[in-house]
Amino acid sequence: MIATKMPPSSDNCHIRLGGLFTGLVVTIWAGNAYATESHMALALQHAQTAAKTNDTKVLVNHADAAKSHLNVVDEHLKAGNSSLDAAIEHAKQGHAELAKKSAEAAVEHLQAAQ
């Protein structure tokens, strides 16, 4: 049986790119996790207000507001995930510039999710 193997530099490139994308996501998340006006923070504030009230109208209003912020987060996380998938696929094909553009799009979506 003849075994073929990709050149070591290609294997290392995929590992480095995967680590780069993971590091990028962690950095963005950690750097902005404490933003007071993030969508996640606002969703939590509205949910907490809803949980503490006995007024059903106030509860509905705050629960709806919390869901609105979570929907924004969800859509941007989905788009960010898709952009990272595209970045990985482009990188695997050796399309560095397209991979970089997809990674940049992911950064924008992840920032917007907050």
Rank of each mutant, 00 (worst) to 15 (best):
I2R: 08
I2M: 15
P8M: 08
S9A: 03
D11N: 11
D11T: 01
N12M: 07
C13E: 15
C13M: 10
I15M: 02
I15D: 02
L17K: 04
G18H: 12
G19V: 12
G19I: 09
L20E: 11
L20G: 09
F21K: 10
G23N: 03
G23V: 03
G23R: 05
L24S: 01
V25Y: 05
V25K: 14
V26N: 02
I28S: 07
N32W: 14
A35R: 06
T36G: 10
E37Y: 11
M40E: 06
M40G: 14
A41V: 12
A41W: 05
L42K: 10
A47Y: 03
A47S: 13
T49G: 06
A50V: 01
N54A: 06
N54D: 14
T56R: 04
T56V: 10
T56N: 15
K57A: 11
L59I: 13
V60H: 06
N61R: 15
N61Y: 12
D64F: 13
A65P: 11
K67I: 14
H69E: 14
H69M: 05
H69G: 09
H69I: 04
L70W: 07
D74P: 01
G80A: 11
S83Q: 04
D85I: 13
A86V: 10
A87D: 01
E89K: 09
E89H: 05
Q93L: 00
Q93S: 03
H95A: 04
L98I: 08
A99Y: 00
E104I: 02
E104M: 08
E104Q: 15
A105R: 12
A106V: 01
A106M: 03
A106H: 07
E108F: 09
E108I: 13
E108A: 13
H109G: 03
L110F: 02
L110T: 00
A112V: 06
A112T: 02
